[in-house]
Amino acid sequence: MSTLHIEQVAKRKTIPNTSELVFGKHYSDHMFLMNYEEGKGWFDPRIVPYQPISLDPAAMIFHYGQTVFEGLKAYRTDDDQILLFRPEENVKRLNRSSERLSIPKVNVEEVLQYLKELVKLDQEWIPTEEGYSLYIRPFIISTEPNLSVAPSKTYTFMIILSPVGSYYKEGIQPVRIHVEENYTRAVKGGTGFAKTAGNYSAAYKAQEKATEEGYSQVLWLDGIEKKYIEEVGSMNVFFKINGEVITPKLNGSILEGITRKSIIELLNSWEMKVSERQISIEELFAAYEKGEVEEVFGTGTAAVISPIGEMKWKDRQIIINNRQTGELAKKLYSTLTRIQTGKESDPFGWVVKVNN
């Protein structure tokens, strides 16, 4: 493991009050960086004061979008322990995304140690209030100044930290979802399963349209037939239909969510019927007409659980559970967040202590 160099800030920033927090707007005192050169590998891991970075105008990230990122959180417990939730899964997924984008992989164990050191150094930025946490954004960008259409030979890996509250202003309240049928997010063989910038910016136009109509998010259908449900813009999606919990199966164009994986494992531990399979938008709306749709909710690191109270597809609209948060969504949210914050025992070995 390379020696980690730490340069601390001369003067700490003023930490904003939780009432002032907006998702992704405030950043802690320090950041982590590490560089890569072809033939040399990853080198020079360091923690430095949070600051702008300088890149050549020809840096390949600007021209070809070769980049991947992750998102996870640090939580503070009632007895002042600092916990991470399944961080190894995030670094493993970062490597899967990197492989798809022809970016060199990182060492999982080393990156986890660097991440812990950064969180420990800026632990004062972890909010203590319930529902708040420290969002962690690791990412890799291509930095070689070269306009050739080929993978970069140099990269920078960075981690920044941001104190956050609820991702949605509605909080754990049902949101309105617009089913997108014109634009396409991803197809099998593409980059849909990777966390890479282009997947998100390509979704902006559909999101703009949904926002104009008063909807919080877009539900994407498959890119070929516009028939099968895939995922919501920032979340995986689950449906409780006639007692069965269904989530679209991973198919190469759906992000393999860590919260998704945890929800499935929780449901299995509760011996609930849960299926990973194709589900069409027609099947969902037909089940609704029969009165069988009990709950719909999204899952993701930022929102954890986001109940869905309304969905619009073409000129058809469905109201789920009278726009109320369902009992299963409440139970899943409570259980998962209590495990994440140390209020409930962790039989799965998901949480990792930072300040041992």
Rank of each mutant, 00 (worst) to 15 (best):
K105A: 12
R277P: 02
E310A: 08
S2M: 15
T154M: 13
E271A: 13
N236Y: 02
S54L: 13
R277H: 12
N182M: 10
P174S: 03
V91T: 12
G41D: 15
A194C: 06
W270G: 08
G198D: 10
K11Y: 01
I126G: 00
R338D: 13
E294F: 13
I229G: 08
T259C: 13
E256N: 10
D315C: 12
S28R: 11
E230S: 14
M235D: 00
P307V: 06
V119Q: 00
Y50G: 09
T18P: 00
S148H: 12
T67R: 07
V164S: 05
D222T: 09
E38D: 15
V119M: 01
E292L: 15
K105F: 03
R100E: 00
L21I: 10
I258E: 00
N199F: 03
D79G: 09
R12C: 01
V164W: 00
N236K: 02
I281C: 05
K105Y: 07
S345W: 01
G171W: 01
N146Q: 07
R176T: 06
E20C: 02
I160Y: 12
N321I: 05
K312H: 08
G257P: 11
G298Q: 11
T18A: 00
E294I: 09
F238P: 00
Q317V: 08
K227G: 08
K343L: 05
W125Y: 09
L33E: 14
